[in-house]
Simulated scan of single mutants.
Amino acid sequence: MHTVERRVTGIAPIGALLREWRASRRLSQLSLALDAGVSTRHLSFVETGKAQPSRELVDKLADALAMPLRERNALLVAAGYAPKYPETALATPMMAQVRRAIDSILAQQEPYPAFLLNRHWDVLAANAAAARVSAFVLDGRTSPHSNMLHNIFDPADLRSKIVNWEEIAGDLMRHLHSEVAATPTDAGVRDLLEQTLAYPDVPQHWRNRDVAAAPTPLLTTHFRHNGRDLRFFSTITAFGTPRDVTLEELRIECAFPEDEATAEFCRQLARGDAVQD
């Protein structure tokens, strides 16, 4: 066996990445070795830099750790190999069919809101209904953010219009904590967590992940503005079995009215009728 030297600056050695991911998945070295079909001794040598893993072993370890495609690429690079999965910009001609599918889903959601989000909750696109509802709730003002979490946590944005804000924000915080734990090397998710926690009057106990809290299967967001109540629940659509980093990280959130009053108001906005309070 020989020590593997890392000469590329800015790239964490594969051993450090594996230990970080094992910790996030709560796996012992023995458990990961068994799942990947490798001896504990060999895995130990990889983690300490005494052995160079083969590309096949890196793939097996990534499978055993259920790593996202972006993180799999990072693991391959840390081991000295080229990335395996492409990351194709959504605006390129290769993604034309994907863009058509996304546009179709957003359009079909009319007259109810729908959003295209990336892994950091940035709003990449939205249908006209989303703009209409936002304009109503914000009195025609443009939201200062293009990130859904900032929209909900910032008192100058949608937060003051959400009746059940603590319930909605608390659920989003649980999801964000889970994403930080699931992707320990994603600095962007950690930064987003710190940014949302920094907003005024965010409960202190939200700084800690509540591992015992069960995920909420369905939440209703309750807006109130000018005496009108709007209630929406959401569904998430993702691309199945993606082989591209960009596709894996996209999701479409569609909002549906919980009651007929909300549905009719959305239809009214779509028709351009004057709003009657």
Rank of each mutant, 00 (worst) to 15 (best):
S146W: 00
H150V: 01
A62P: 07
L117H: 08
L124S: 10
E249G: 01
T92A: 01
Q97R: 09
D210N: 15
L197Y: 03
L32N: 04
E47G: 07
V98W: 01
V189N: 00
T196N: 04
V38R: 02
A89N: 00
H2W: 12
L269N: 03
V77S: 01
T185G: 10
V38K: 03
G240L: 14
Q97C: 07
L176Q: 06
Q109A: 15
E5I: 15
V8L: 12
R209F: 09
A156V: 06
R99N: 11
E5S: 14
D259S: 04
G272P: 14
H145A: 03
Q108M: 08
L57D: 07
F233E: 00
L90K: 02
E20G: 15
L116H: 07
R209H: 14
T88R: 08
V211E: 07
E166F: 06
A91E: 11
R190T: 10
D103T: 07
E264P: 05
T237W: 03
V8M: 02
E248P: 13
P13K: 10
V202Y: 13
V4F: 15
G140C: 15
F223K: 02
D35Q: 10
P68Q: 06
D259N: 14
I236L: 05
L192M: 08
D186E: 13
L124I: 14
T221V: 15
T237H: 10
M173Y: 05
E56T: 09
F223W: 10
N127G: 07
P93F: 02
T88G: 03
R190Y: 14
I105A: 11
I162T: 02
D191I: 02
R26E: 00
S143T: 02
T262V: 09
N118M: 06
A96C: 07
T216W: 06
T216H: 09
R267E: 11
A169N: 10
R271Q: 09
A263G: 15
E249N: 02
L116C: 08
H150I: 01
T3E: 12
R231E: 05
D229W: 01
R243N: 12
Q276L: 13
V8K: 06
T221Y: 03
T9K: 04
R271S: 11
A181H: 10
H145S: 09
I168A: 08
F153W: 01
S104K: 09
R267A: 14
T88C: 07
R224V: 13
D210T: 15
P184T: 04
T88I: 11
I252Y: 01
D210R: 06
Q97D: 13
K161D: 10
D186Q: 09
V275M: 05
R224H: 09
T216F: 08
R55T: 04
N118K: 05
F45W: 10
